[in-house]
């Protein structure tokens, strides 16, 4: 979908920003959270955890929209997100969305 300008009701909408908590040593490296995050916020960390797996790493801090998908899809209870704040909708967000 393409937008050619900021929607008129942009002021009444906002983007939730989540803060991610990763319990590194619980992770078994299945990769579900990394693969299915709708905003591609996560990637595999280069270092190993205690068990010898690569836990996820937050690459784009501030781009997590607190959708909780990684939290409910993680088989190991190793990741969760909490709502940090709401961000105002800007023209850049709309432009970024149109590109996707």
């Amino acid at each position: 979908m393409k937008f050619w300008r900021l929607p008129l009701d942009a002021g009444s909408h906002s983007i939730p920003i989540g803060e991610l908590h990763i319990i590194k040593d619980r992770c078994k490296g299945c990769g579900f959270c990394i693969e299915f995050c709708p905003n591609q916020v996560l990637k595999e960390a280069p270092e190993f955890n205690k068990k010898g797996y690569h836990p996820p790493l937050v690459t784009k801090q501030g781009e997590c929209v607190n959708c909780n998908l990684c939290e409910i899809i993680c088989p190991e209870f190793a990741i969760y997100s909490v709502l940090k704040e709401y961000k105002e909708l800007t023209a850049e967000d709309i432009a970024g969305y149109s590109k996707k």
Partner: peptide
């Protein structure tokens, strides 16, 4: 450490399921 831990028996996580197993989900 995780908010869901209140539903899990203390000391039981990590579970025995293999990496990539769907049961944890």
């Amino acid at each position: 450490l995780h908010p869901d831990d209140q539903y899990l028996k203390p000391g039981r996580i990590p579970h025995i399921w293999c990496p990539g197993c769907g049961l944890g989900v």
